[in-house]
């Protein structure tokens, strides 16, 4: 019962949804990985995504853990190739053309039009996650404090995520 083909299919599909960032694909990731294929639970997905914010590099590396659970080392490698391959090829092909289209008036229209949609997708991803992660007064407080600090001060977000973890370790057990 190899999950490898399903992993390849799902993650190459998710790859193409990441307009404006990985979070745009989060609602579909949840649907496919949790509800359709049962590779992990809602709670595990939220935990992995959040811990993934502490890892350096592209901020969706938690997909490696999903691949590893579902298909071992091969699963992890397939997920990586499926998630980053399609968009890499697209970027490689489109960038040169896109640069030459600098004076094409629709180029600005596309950039301006995609901006609000990608922000909407990011927000939808964030709210999908909030449904599972913000479950009471304490978690709501942590989320709000982090939001306010990040909007007012220039702090490395990873430090605040660690701070949230330390707070949870101390008071949310």
């Amino acid at each position: 019962m190899s999950e490898i083909p399903a992993l390849a299919r799902v993650f190459s599909y998710l790859s193409l949804l990441t307009v404006g960032g990985g979070m745009a694909a989060f609602p579909e990731l949840q649907d496919q990985a949790v509800h359709v294929h049962g590779w992990l639970t809602d709670k595990q997905l939220i935990h992995l995504y959040s811990v993934g914010q502490l890892a350096p590099g592209p901020n969706m590396m938690m997909i490696v853990a999903i691949g590893q659970w579902a298909g071992g080392l091969a699963g992890a490698l397939v997920v990586l190739a499926a998630f980053f391959g399609p968009t890499a090829v697209l970027a490689y092909g489109v960038a040169a053309v896109w640069k030459r289209l600098e004076s094409w008036p629709w180029r600005t229209s596309i950039q301006k039009g995609l901006a609000p949609v990608s922000i909407g997708l990011l927000l939808a991803g964030g709210l999908t996650m909030a449904k599972g992660a913000v479950t009471g007064t304490l978690t709501a407080t942590v989320a709000t404090v982090v939001l306010i600090i990040l909007l007012r001060f220039k702090v490395n977000p990873a430090l605040l995520v660690i701070g949230g973890g330390a707070f949870g370790f101390l008071v949310m057990q």
Partner: peptide, 30 residues
């Protein structure tokens, strides 16, 4: 229990982080 507690805090902080990105991007491009 200890890991779960820490993860709850990490997840809540990550929500705050995503929302702050929404606000910052929104200010810049909407």
């Amino acid at each position: 229990a200890a890991v779960t507690g820490a993860l709850k805090g990490v997840a809540a902080a990550a929500v705050g982080l995503i929302l702050s990105t929404v606000v910052q991007l929104g200010k810049k491009s909407l």
